[in-house]
Write a protein that binds this DNA or RNA. Structure first.
Lengths: 308, 308
DNA sequence: TTATTTGATGATTTATAGTCATGTTATAAC
DNA sequence: GTTATAACATGACTATAAATCATCAAATAA
């Protein structure tokens, strides 16, 4: 008597139709059941919620004020339910349509946004949430469930996540168009002698390798500026110095300004980027799209072993 | 496969708990059912909506991205349902909690609003909708279902509605405090000779009776002003003339200004007010309250036969 | 290796929802 | 007044859906 049991939405639907049509017979016909079924359903609903909803007067069902109010409530609930059904259809059709992406800075400012834009132009239904953070934080955020997938600089060590390698490239040298090295076709470690270097302030495998290499070869640079990766290109363009940087970031920035030059660099410092996610996302359509829709890199930037 | 059958909310609740607890065993314990029931319910839900929600991996259930989204949807739906249950409990406790009241002007500006205020101060849960219109329109509006109850001037003829008589009073004479008749203790028809009368412009039994009576007795008045009942008292207070009016309106207005006098009038012109509503509201609690909570009238205003 | 935990499944029971046949009451038609 | 029609209720029955029991298989912890 006291606790309301609304597991069966059917009785609510029958009530709603009854309220709208006014007679049990008509309701039964509309819903494709029998009149006695409607009568029973109503009686049971009233018993269940402990409220008389219709007055039985001269063999007619007359809606009581309580029925008016319940009807209003039910309209809301049923429309909510209808929305959910639509969402389910969409889910079935397109799979999960929301993805939270954490992205390392190297890819986060243009490369991944470009990818997302491509996906969304084909499938406007998806919702995307994108944030940029250093690779180690990306890994932690995905492990913790704050994000669904992460773009990271490889290698990463995480036994909880699936790691797909996506891109392998070699560092390139970025310099102002009017730089003294502008005519060289390839830049080497030797060329850096006496130069001012601009390097990322985040721990960075390639930059570390470079500095180690310079010290091994006993090459002295004029000085260095450490900066956030988003600011490096601007520093270079303004003549602060030259930088060794992953080619994706380099091309992303060069595309928006004409005062920068990109040069190959020897020896090769490798950058590898990948996607990390939990096992349960393995067969997800959005993950698939993220991999498929990555912009092509200029051929000469792709490391040999990924070219096949 | 294609049409979604969500008659059973139970499966949604089981899914929700499963999503939250992470294991079917725990879910079963929490919900007081068996583990096999949970397993079956989930399998059936997935089959029903055509979406895999959990990945079965090493005898564990791992939520898929689709489950994340469905969970969000279900939270909304279930909170909606919870609200509805609360509404139902309130309905059971207090009956229908919304009432639409149509009211004749005589009672609509102060008497009924005062009643409503009393009811709401005791039971803030109720929602009230109040409108003012002439008695015949009140009757039609209630018959048509646009309003739940109506306060009307009696008599009314409607076989579709229940009519409860609430108040029987006699017309009183309202005049400015500085009027020449201000010293009389009782006003009679004779006293109206040569006076300017202010009367309601709506068809009105008492006013009609008065005019008939005056013409029968061959009493000539100086002139008359017909006005909306809401404006009559202001006209009187400003010296336009005197009026014969129902005592409720008279006292309502006199209470807010000190330049008006109320005098008994002979012979008696009766006013009767009543409540009209459809049969299905007969036992409604709000109707009962409306009757109970009417402000007391000063004793001398109540007609003899209602005094008991 | 053993004990424990987890989810899945066949067989069975239980509970629910609905039908059928019929009854009663009211209204409309003749 | 009689008859036909239409409304809702109800006892008895049935089909369907839901849950259980008992048991299995896989994984993990002791």
């Amino acid at each position: 008597m006291s606790d309301i049991n609304l597991n069966s939405l059917k009785s609510l639907l029958i009530f709603k139709t009854l309220y709208e049509t006014g007679t049990a017979t008509r309701t039964a016909r509309d819903l494709g059941i029998t009149q006695s079924g409607v009568s029973r359903s109503l009686a049971q609903l009233e018993e269940n919620i402990g409220i008389a909803l219709f007055m039985r007067h001269k063999k007619r069902l007359i809606a009581l004020p309580e029925a008016d109010e319940l009807y209003g409530e039910i309209l809301g609930l049923l429309s909510n339910l209808e929305n959910m059904k639509h969402s389910i259809v969409a889910l079935r059709e397109f799979g999960a349509s929301r993805i939270r992406i954490a992205c390392a800075p190297a890819l986060g400012f243009a490369y991944v946004p470009k990818t997302i834009a491509r996906i969304l132009s084909d499938n406007p239904k998806y919702s995307v949430y994108l944030d940029i953070m250093p690779s180690p934080e990306v890994v932690r955020a995905v492990e913790a469930g704050y994000f669904d997938v992460g773009f990271v600089t490889l290698p990463v060590t995480s036994q909880a996540l699936v790691v797909d390698e996506l891109i392998a490239t070699e560092a390139v040298c970025l310099m102002p168009r009017n730089h003294s090295l502008a005519k060289a076709s390839v830049i080497t470690t030797e060329d850096l002698k006496g130069q001012h270097l601009v390097i990322p302030n985040q721990p960075n495998l390639a930059a570390d390798q470079l500095l180690l290499h310079l010290s091994e070869k006993n090459i002295r640079i004029a000085g260095k500026t450490e900066a956030n990766i988003a600011a490096i290109c601007s520093l270079v363009a303004n003549g602060v110095g030259i930088t060794l940087i992953n080619p994706i970031t380099a091309y992303d920035h060069q595309a928006t300004r004409d005062d920068l030059l990109i040069k190959p660099f020897k020896p090769a410092f490798h950058y590898r980027f990948g996607l990390v996610y939990k096992q349960n996302w393995a067969n997800n359509r959005l993950i698939g799209l993220l991999k498929e829709m990555l912009p092509e890199l200029p051929d000469h930037l792709v490391a040999e072993r990924l070219k096949d």
